[in-house]
């Protein structure tokens, strides 16, 4: 079989990032529960967690950061976009680094369950903490406290569904393995 030189996989890398970014945007905007501070909570963390488990830190960072940033702009919260980009980007990186620690490159989704959970929990903390800091900076630390339980809920649901979905997708669509870089 003709193997593609990894250096020549730019197109695949771009395609992965772009499509997953779009999926994050759609999930952020289509499942929205309005909340006081950040505007809304959503299912975006499911896709970020999923991307982190299957495709590693960089893809997850771009898809998560760019996707939530774009969703903020489209959804009428442009002032949050740069912060979402950084926070969800960092969340993606953390989850992937921990969940996939010790895995060979290009073997997606075979991460151990406890590592996935650990990564997910740390991701939750990064996301919740990040929004608390930025919220405090933008409009006072006391009001930003209100958001903490909501963000924990959102990212927690994200981790649980993310783990389930990454398994069902691997089973339903095995060629996803060949998409890993």
């Amino acid at each position: 079989m003709k193997e593609i030189n990894p250096a020549k996989k730019t197109a695949l890398q771009i395609a992965l990032m772009a499509v997953l970014t779009a999926v994050v945007v759609v999930f952020t905007l289509m499942f929205r529960v309005p909340t006081p501070i950040k505007g809304y909570i959503s299912l975006c963390d499911v896709i970020i967690t999923f991307s982190a488990f299957l495709f590693g830190p960089w893809i997850a960072a771009i898809a998560g950061g760019l996707g939530t940033g774009i969703a903020d702009v489209i959804g009428g919260f442009p002032q949050w976009a740069p912060f979402s980009f950084l926070i969800h980007g960092a969340q993606g990186i953390i989850i992937a680094l921990i969940a996939r620690a010790g895995l060979k490159k290009g073997v997606p989704g075979d991460a151990k369950l406890f590592k996935m959970i650990l990564g997910g929990v740390l991701g939750m903390l990064v996301m919740t903490g990040g929004y608390y800091l930025v919220g405090g900076f933008l409009h006072g630390f006391k009001p930003a406290l209100v958001e903490i339980p909501l963000n924990l809920l959102q990212s927690g649901v994200g981790v649980v569904l993310g783990i389930i979905v990454s398994r069902t997708v691997l089973k339903a669509y095995p060629p996803v393995r060949s998409l890993a870089l």
Partner: peptide, 9 residues
């Protein structure tokens, strides 16, 4: 094909 759709040619 075959590149990102894997196969044997």
């Amino acid at each position: 094909v075959p590149r990102y759709l894997a196969g044997e040619v």
